[in-house]
Design a protein around this nucleic acid. Structure first.
Lengths: 167, 167
DNA sequence: GAAATCCTTACAATGTCAGTAAACATTGAC
DNA sequence: GTCAATGTTTACTGACATTGTAAGGATTTC
């Protein structure tokens, strides 16, 4: 297949939930679990992993909880993803030097590498500040169209959508 | 993780091997297996899958073998990949309508969708004709530098490499 | 009919992932 | 100091996908 683990999805949701709140707001894990519909035990590991990556600050004990360690505009989708998935790789053949019997002679590995760099670059541009903003826009659109009959479709602004894929 | 199956990698190699040869050349599976270092039993399945996708034409019997069904410039990396992996998906949350409890309210799914479209678009631009050309360029560079001391590093021409990824 | 080839199916070994559970450590309120 | 609420860590299980092996069947040429 070709997709991020569910754990990573969950982690993104957690960071987004924190990014939505005023800076420094501390929230208990269980509260986030309720809000974001994440199984408790999974969430425990995710929180620990986020903390080990320095993305959140944790506070044990009564009234404890977690809070973002940085501004949402300093945290990118790439950072969270790679912290949970490891460095992005589209094909094993560029994983290790010498792992592929064709080494540098292979044009395919060059392309996989180029595509990976492209994807990484793009993911590095997506900050959680941006995601929060887009979330607000989407909610505004939903409210605006609430009484209309048409189904509201969210639009990501200022971002060209590539749909000119042949075949 | 985040990578294509080995089977897909193998399949790409098979198509590339065929694309390198003069149009219509028929090659036996076992020969490709030797050339591309693919386990025999795996290769059988891969060839069958390629045939079912209409990418190759097969001929049973003595002097049989496989040949490309189309020009290399009509076959893209995306086609082969999606035929073996299914439609590209970066995150499950955009897999099915109604599968994600947040539906369209979620800015994250919008981004995953945008990134996926970007990647698909880029992969659709990579044809096997291009891969063959790049392979020739790489070999030429290798020959040119064969007597020099520097380790030859292949360069993909006219393709910007995104390495300005922060952090 | 025999040999070479592609096609299909079943199966086992391995690894990954999602989720559960339980014990532990830390903190603040009383 | 004790207790309760919270985060931390580890072990385990079941489900599933992936890789690879093996065997038999179908097709074509000689």
């Amino acid at each position: 297949m070709f997709r991020v683990n569910r754990q990573t999805d969950y982690a993104v949701r957690v960071v987004l939930a924190l990014a939505k709140k005023p800076k420094g707001t501390r929230v208990s894990t269980s509260e986030i679990g309720r809000e974001m519909l994440i199984p408790r035990a999974m969430l425990q590991r995710i929180v620990a992993t986020l903390a080990s990556g320095g993305f959140i600050e944790t506070q044990a004990g009564r009234d404890g909880g977690i809070a973002l360690a940085h501004d949402p505009n300093q945290i990118t989708l790439l950072q969270i993803t790679e912290h949970f998935e490891g460095t992005l790789i589209l094909s094993d053949c560029i994983l290790k030097e010498g792992d592929c019997p064709f080494e540098h002679k292979c044009p395919v590995s060059c392309q996989w590498k180029r595509l990976r760099d492209l994807l990484r670059d793009e993911m590095a541009r997506v900050t959680f500040e941006q995601l929060v903003e887009e979330g607000k826009q989407i909610e505004a659109e939903l409210l605006q169209h609430a009484s209309s009959k048409s189904v509201p479709v969210p639009v990501v602004r200022n971002l060209p959508v590539a749909d000119n894929v042949p075949l």
